[in-house]
Computed example of a mutant assay.
Amino acid sequence: MIAIIDYGLGNIKNIERALLHLGYEAELTSDITTIKNSTHVVLPGVGHFKDAMNQLQKSGLDKVLNEIKDTHRIIGICLGMQVLFEFSEEGATKGLGLLEGKVKPIESPYPVPHLGWNNLQSEHLILNGDVYFIHSYHVSTNSPVIATANYGQPITAIVQQKNIIGIQFHPEKSGDYGLEILDLALKEGFLND
């Protein structure tokens, strides 16, 4: 069962519909026992980094995610990806620290936020199509970057460290191709080891 973490910020209904469409058993929840008993955790998010961390800390879900980081596949989407990292310049706030790196403002000659369709670039065969982004901050990391996008600067689009995956774009808004990526993230991930 996949636990979709409901912490008051995010596109949780769209994620739930996407997972159900793919045939997964998924539940929107903030219940600690349900999250611990799940096999996979999806952490969605839309909004401000500091608000997200405040909500996670207030509910104790930050501690739960740290407890299960080695036993569950954790997939962060959009802001949910960003809070997986150590620190964000958005609100000068510490993140969950499940992945090494920091979140910084996008510095691009193009309009910010990075809004709309952009092409993924990756050595992974499936990760070379168009997906839907909406964000003003991006991740700078030494963790394994699986795919990037170009928006006047490289944008980390997918990162994976062992069982923890971050997806900056919205797979649930990226049509059948986005659903295929989400399905792959849940089933086997993007690393060969």
Score class of each variant (00 low, 15 high):
Met1Tyr: 07
Ala3Phe: 11
Ala3His: 06
Ile5Ser: 04
Ile5Leu: 14
Tyr7Arg: 01
Leu9Cys: 00
Asn11Lys: 12
Ile12Cys: 03
Lys13Ile: 10
Lys13Pro: 06
Arg17Tyr: 14
Ala18Thr: 03
Leu19Gln: 02
Leu19Phe: 03
His21Ala: 13
His21Gln: 14
Gly23His: 07
Gly23Ile: 06
Gly23Met: 04
Tyr24Trp: 06
Ala26Arg: 03
Thr29Val: 01
Ile32Asp: 10
Thr34Ser: 10
Ile35Arg: 08
Asn37Trp: 02
Thr39Glu: 14
His40Leu: 08
Val41Gly: 01
Val41Glu: 03
Leu43Ser: 01
Leu43Gly: 00
Pro44Glu: 08
Pro44Tyr: 10
Val46Ile: 01
Lys50Tyr: 07
Asp51Val: 08
Asp51His: 12
Ala52Thr: 09
Met53Gln: 02
Met53His: 03
Asn54Leu: 15
Gln55Asp: 13
Leu56Cys: 07
Leu56Gly: 04
Lys58Leu: 15
Lys58Trp: 13
Leu61Lys: 07
Leu61Arg: 08
Asp62Met: 05
Lys63Ile: 09
Val64Ser: 02
Leu65Lys: 00
Asn66Glu: 15
Glu67Met: 04
Glu67Ser: 03
Ile68Phe: 10
Ile68Leu: 07
Lys69Val: 01
Asp70Ala: 13
Arg73Asn: 05
Ile75Lys: 00
Ile75Cys: 00
Gly76Cys: 03
Ile77Trp: 01
Ile77Cys: 01
Cys78Asp: 14
Leu79Val: 11
Val83Ser: 03
Leu84Val: 08
Leu84Ser: 06
Phe85Met: 06
Gly91Val: 08
Thr93Tyr: 09
Gly95Pro: 02
Leu96Gln: 05
Leu98Pro: 01
Leu99His: 06
Glu100Thr: 07
Gly101Tyr: 05
Gly101Asn: 08
Lys102Tyr: 12
Lys104Gln: 13
Pro105Cys: 12
Pro105Tyr: 13
Pro105Phe: 14
Ile106Ala: 07
Ser108Leu: 12
Pro109Ala: 14
Tyr110Val: 10
Pro111Arg: 12
Val112Asp: 06
Val112Met: 08
His114Pro: 00
Trp117Phe: 13
Trp117Ile: 12
Leu120Val: 03
Glu123Trp: 04
His124Trp: 09
His124Ala: 04
His124Phe: 12
Leu125Arg: 13
Ile126Asn: 10
Ile126Gly: 09
Ile126Lys: 15
Asn128Lys: 09
Val131Met: 09
Tyr132Thr: 03
Tyr132His: 06
Ser136Ile: 07
His138Leu: 09
Val139Cys: 07
Asn142Pro: 02
Ser143Phe: 04
Pro144Phe: 15
Val145Glu: 06
Ala147His: 05
Ala147Thr: 06
Gly152Thr: 09
Gln153Ser: 14
Gln153Phe: 05
Pro154Ser: 11
Ile155Gly: 06
Ile155Lys: 08
Thr156Gln: 03
Thr156His: 01
Val159Gly: 00
Val159Thr: 04
Gln161His: 10
Lys162Phe: 13
Asn163Met: 11
Ile164Thr: 09
Gly166Gln: 10
Ile167Gln: 05
Gln168His: 08
Phe169Arg: 00
His170Pro: 01
His170Arg: 00
Lys173Pro: 00
Ser174Ile: 00
Asp176Ile: 15
Ile181Tyr: 02
Ile181Phe: 03
Ile181His: 02
Asp183Gln: 09
Leu184Gln: 05
Ala185His: 05
Ala185Gln: 04
Glu188Trp: 08
Glu188Met: 08
Gly189Lys: 04
Asn192Phe: 15
